[in-house]
């Protein structure tokens, strides 16, 4: 079975983002970029499935600017077999991404798509579900465990207050949550070897997809600074206020 793993290039999770002074967005120039951490987990899961013999080939896909090649090289170093870059000027919205991925699914015919549950830049948490909808496939979102047997993926999902297990008839979409696995390092020997793995670049037009955004960002602002509240004089006063005023206990 072939696996398709979409990966997104985002501002590194260690970097404190800064809202631009003119409110037009978040400063990304000169900022360290990395693979979206949830996508790393997805790549790791795909590699483990291949190591177990449940998958035969892993195709990593990224959609965005030329530098997404670096993100794809990381996926290749982790164990993906080849990579496809859909070259766009900006990072398209989830709807457009889902349409591009659908076109790639038509071309590649994977048995499963594994991807991060959300990107840590726009925090949309939508692409996997949307791709599943467009394809009419089953979806196993927020996965913390995946098992494959006889054309069925048994997926344990992180839901409010616990876990839920669903059985999906393949082909299906899996979106990875934090506890699915701990991704491996892209080791230096593997990074060197990844330089020689195939990486193909295509244009959205080649896939017949219009990537015009549907949302316009009017402005981006810093969240309001939290103001300090009151000092209480005693534990009794504190508990009374939490009960009567804040109503949180």
């Amino acid at each position: 079975m072939k696996l398709l793993v979409p990966v997104k290039r985002v501002v590194d999770y260690n970097v404190k983002v800064r809202v631009k002074a003119d409110g037009s967005g978040v400063e990304t120039a000169g900022v360290k970029m990395s693979m979206n951490p949830f996508d790393e987990i997805a790549v790791e899961e795909a590699v483990r499935l291949k190591e177990k013999g449940a998958a035969t080939e892993i195709v990593a896909v990224s959609i965005g600017v030329q530098q997404c090649q670096e993100t794809l090289r990381t996926a290749l170093a982790m164990g993906a077999d080849r990579a496809v870059l859909v070259l766009t000027e900006e990072s398209p919205e989830p709807l457009a991404v889902a349409k591009l991925l659908r076109a790639l699914v038509d071309r590649e015919q994977p048995g499963m798509v594994i991807m991060g549950k959300q990107a840590i830049d726009d925090d949309m948490n939508a692409t996997g579900q949307m791709l599943a909808g467009l394809l009419g496939w089953a979806q196993g979102t927020f996965a913390s465990k995946v098992e494959l047997s006889d054309g069925v993926a048994t997926v344990t999902r992180e839901v409010d207050g616990g876990l839920e297990t669903v059985a999906l008839t393949l082909p299906a979409i899996i979106t990875a949550d934090l506890r699915l696995n701990e991704p491996r390092y892209a080791s230096l020997p593997n990074i060197m070897k990844a330089r020689k793995k195939p990486l193909e670049t295509i244009a959205p037009g080649d896939l017949g997809v219009d990537v015009t955004p549907r949302l316009t960002t009017l402005r981006v602002a810093e969240p309001p600074v939290r103001q300090s509240g009151v000092k209480v004089g005693s534990v009794a006063e504190l508990v009374a206020k939490l009960r009567a005023e804040a109503k949180v206990i």
Partner: peptide, 10 residues
């Protein structure tokens, strides 16, 4: 490797 500061542009 990879640890330590991540000084941004500027």
């Amino acid at each position: 490797g990879g640890g330590g500061p991540n000084y941004p542009g500027g």
